[in-house]
Nucleic acid binder design. Structure first.
Lengths: 221, 221
DNA sequence: CTCGTGGATACTGTATACAGTATTCAGCCT
DNA sequence: AGGCTGAATACTGTATACAGTATCCACGAG
C-alpha cells in the first residue's frame, strides 16, 4: 500500500485564533492600548465567540494578556524587575540544558549545532525582529539537542512571553551585532566537557543579553 | 470609611471544575483507566458542558490529561525517561532559586525557612501523601523566598504534573523518612554564601530524590 | 464462520441564546 | 455648575442547540 495515513492533526479553530493573535502581537499589530473583545474578534474572524474565548483565556493563563478592568483583554505589561526575573529563569533553563549537553558529550550533535549557528547568524541587513528570531532559533537548538521536553516547554513559555511583552523592542537601539557573534563559543565550552564551565558560560551569555537589553531600555528612555 | 472593598475575585465555574479534578486525581479517585467525558462530568456536577470543557482542555494543555483515541480524556502516563527529565527540570529551577537566595544573603529570610522546615517536617505517622505535601511545601518555600515569579510558576507546573502522573505513588515502598531529614542542611549551605555550592547541594538533594524514586518503582515492580 | 458494510451511538467542536454584572452617560436635583 | 441616580450599553460567563466525525455493533453476503 502506497498511501499514507492522513494525520488529521486535530486542528481546532481556537488554535488558529491563538496563532493569529500571537503573530499579530509579534508584528506589532496589537499594541498595549488595544482592547481585545471576544465579540469584536469573533465578528472580524467570522467565527463564533467560543473558540475566540478559548484562545484569549489561554493567553491570559500564559500571562500574555490580562483582563482590562472595563472588560476586554489587554497586553500585559512587564516591569524592569520582572524582566530581570525572566532572564534569571532563562539562565536556569538554558544553563541546565548546557550541563546536560556537556554530560552527554556527543561530538556529532555539537557539530550539527555549529552548522546551524553559522547558517543562522549569517544575516544580511537584519532588523531587530530578524535578530530576535535568529537568536531564539539558535538558543532553541541547544534546548532541542538537550532533549528534555519539560525544559523545552519552559523555554517556549519564557520566549513566548518575552515576545508578548514586546521585550525586545527595547533593544532597537542597542548594538545588535555585538550580541549575535558568540554562540559558537558556547558550543566550544560544552565540547571541553566541563559542566560547571558550560553552565557559567551560558549564564554569562544570558547576563550579557540582559545588560544589552537594559542599555537599550535606558537609551530609548 | 471602615469598609473594605469586596474583592469579588472572579471565580469561574471552570476554575472550580479544574480544582475538583486536580483534587480527585491527587486523591486517586481518578485512575489511569477512567475516561473523563465532558457530558458525563457536566451531568455529575450539574452544570453545562462549557466550563467542564474549559477545565479539561486546560489540563490537557498542561500535559496532565490527553485525549483518548476513542473520545474522552485520560490521565497521561509518564515513562521512566520522562521522570528523569522531570527531575532534571526540577534541578534547574530549584538550583537557580538556591543561587538567587545565596546571592541575596538575607539571614532573616533563612531563619524563617528554618522555622518552617522544622514545623513541616514534624509529622506524626505520615502517609505517602503527607510526605509528598510536606516535601512540596518546604521546597516551595525556598522558591517563594527567591521571589522570582517565573521560576515559581515553573515549579508549580512541574510539581502539578508530578502529582498528576501519580509520580509519588511509586515511593510508597521507599524509605520516606530518609528523604525528609536534610532540608535544614540546604539552608545551611545557602548561608555559607557559596553560590556554586548551593546549586550543587540542591542538585544533589533532588538527585537523591530521583534515586529514591527509582528504587521505589523497582521495588514495586 | 468470517469479513465487509451500513447504520446507530457517543463524543467533540462550534454556534447561538440567555443571564448577570460592571461601566458609562444623560438627566435631574441642589 | 456639580454631583447623584438610574437606565442603556457593553461585556463576560453559562447553557443549550446543532453539526460533524470516529467508533462500535449487528446484520448480511461470501
Amino acid at each position: 500500500m502506497a498511501l499514507h495515513s492522513i494525520t488529521t492533526q486535530r486542528r481546532r479553530l481556537a488554535d488558529e485564533v491563538y496563532d493569529q493573535l500571537v503573530q499579530a502581537i509579534m508584528d506589532r499589530e496589537i499594541g498595549p492600548d488595544d482592547r481585545l473583545v471576544q465579540e469584536k474578534l469573533a465578528a472580524e474572524l467570522d467565527i463564533s465567540r467560543t473558540p475566540v474565548r478559548e484562545a484569549l483565556l489561554r493567553l491570559e493563563k500564559e500571562g500574555v494578556l490580562h483582563l482590562a478592568n472595563s472588560g476586554g483583554f489587554r497586553l500585559a505589561k512587564i516591569s524592569e524587575e520582572e524582566t530581570l526575573e525572566l532572564y534569571q529563569a532563562r539562565a536556569a533553563i538554558e544553563g541546565q540544558a548546557a550541563r546536560i549537553l556537556t554530560a552527554r558529550n556527543d561530538p556529532e550533535e555539537l557539530e550539527r549545532l555549529r552548522v546551524l549557528i553559522r547558517q543562522t547568524e549569517d544575516l544580511k541587513d537584519p532588523t531587530t525582529r530578524d535578530y530576535f528570531i535568529a537568536n531564539r532559533t539558535i538558543h532553541r537548538a541547544f534546548m532541542e539537542a538537550a532533549g528534555n521536553r519539560f525544559l523545552l516547554e519552559m523555554f517556549d513559555m519564557i520566549w513566548g512571553r518575552a515576545m508578548a511583552f514586546h521585550l525586545f523592542a527595547a533593544i532597537e537601539n542597542a548594538d545588535i551585532s555585538k550580541s549575535l557573534g558568540n554562540h559558537i563559543e558556547l558550543v566550544d565550552v560544552i565540547a571541553t566537557g566541563d559542566r560547571g564551565a558550560a553552565l557559567e558560560a551560558f549564564t554569562d551569555h544570558i547576563q550579557e543579553g540582559f545588560e544589552l537589553h537594559l542599555t537599550g531600555i535606558r537609551r530609548s528612555a
